[in-house]
């Protein structure tokens, strides 16, 4: 797979064609969403409009995409569509953004801290039962949300949490299976001599954790934070089950309600709203592309 193709031009050409096809196939849905968000209302369903919208002058002449005024016209359409979404009389997207951000920050903080503590207990302390606990960690990944959503709802109602954001972030403060797993693998790789040295200096577990392990684990902690942020930002089922008031909607839930109400007809606005909801994750991805991909890759390396 690695060396052969270099010498064979035909194989190389096939390879490039396959890669190009792959890129086009996977990029098209998002490109089409973007193209739709660039259209004014009267072009949204127009079959003659392709990837780029038609921009006309006041006199009614079509502007060429090569002219600089074309792109200021497109920017004007994007601004109009964005404003129409953000100022929607029925759906308060700026508020949904705040809600999502609030829930995401609280649960990211809890997830990182608690999972790191638990992972330390599994990776750096030798005790009978740690393998059993680790197996429980892996087993909890198997539990379908549907099995626990109804009784969880009843539990949270009993606790008086329905009507607040607590159901969405408090559980994160008890750690999560995937984060614990990832951090445990990382902590196991840190040389034990460092602990011993800290112990000789009189550090207990708590200080070893904060002064030795945590500073060395920043990349892994960042991956956990990113994954948790994305999981919370993208979650649909949790907010649907636990939030009972429109003023509390997260972006994902608000977006679904927005689409539902409009029945999809102003597709340019619905696509604009979808892209606004996607934008934060896109930024996170650009900032941390490599560590995200590596974080996913470690999932397959269980042993």
């Amino acid at each position: 797979m690695r060396t052969r193709n270099r010498s064979n031009p035909l194989a190389r050409l096939t390879l490039y064609a396959a890669l190009a096809l792959l890129a086009v196939a996977f990029a098209t849905p998002l490109l089409w969403m973007l193209a739709t968000a660039l259209r004014p209302a009267d072009q949204t369903l127009d079959p003659t409009v392709g990837l780029l919208p038609r921009i006309t002058t006041d006199a009614g002449d079509t502007v060429s995409p090569l002219a600089p005024t074309y792109w200021s016209g497109v920017a004007g359409v994007v601004a109009d569509n964005t404003r129409a979404v953000l100022d929607s009389p029925t759906h308060d997207f700026p508020l949904y953004m705040q809600n999502s951000l609030k829930v995401a920050l609280l649960s990211v903080l809890g997830m990182v801290l608690s999972s790191a503590v638990v992972a330390y207990g599994l990776a750096r302390i030798r005790w009978r039962g740690r393998t059993a606990v680790f197996i429980v960690v892996l087993a909890t990944m198997m539990m379908p949300f549907t099995v626990i959503m109804a009784p969880q709802y009843l539990l949270f109602r009993q606790l008086g949490w329905i009507g607040s954001f607590k159901p969405l972030w408090v559980p994160a403060w008890f750690g999560g299976a995937f984060s614990i797993f990832l951090l445990r693998q990382f902590f196991m790789g840190i040389p034990r001599d460092l602990d011993e040295a800290a112990r000789l200096d009189g550090c207990g577990h708590w200080r070893t954790f904060w002064l030795v392990i945590m500073p060395l684990s920043k990349p892994a902690l960042a991956v956990v934070a990113l994954f948790q942020f994305m999981a919370v930002w993208n979650d649909f089922a949790g907010p649907l089950v636990f939030l009972n008031h429109e003023r509390m909607y997260t972006v994902a839930l608000g977006l679904q309600m927005y689409q539902n109400q409009h029945g999809g007809v102003p597709w340019n606005l619905v696509m604009t709203a979808s892209l606004i909801a996607t934008l934060p994750v896109f930024v996170v991805f650009l900032l941390a592309q490599r560590s995200i991909v590596e974080g996913v890759a470690t999932q397959g390396l269980k042993d």
């Binding site: 190389r12 890129a23 993208n234 996607t278 592309q289």
Partner: peptide, 30 residues
């Protein structure tokens, strides 16, 4: 196969996993 451009294609293939499932579903409805 690691030819020039393959890491770009990998990013393109990976990106849909990051799109909020609600946004992805709505996009595909369109």
């Amino acid at each position: 196969a690691r030819v020039r451009g393959s890491s770009f294609v990998r990013a393109v293939v990976f990106f849909p996993t990051l799109v909020p499932i609600v946004a992805a579903s709505i996009g595909w409805m369109w």
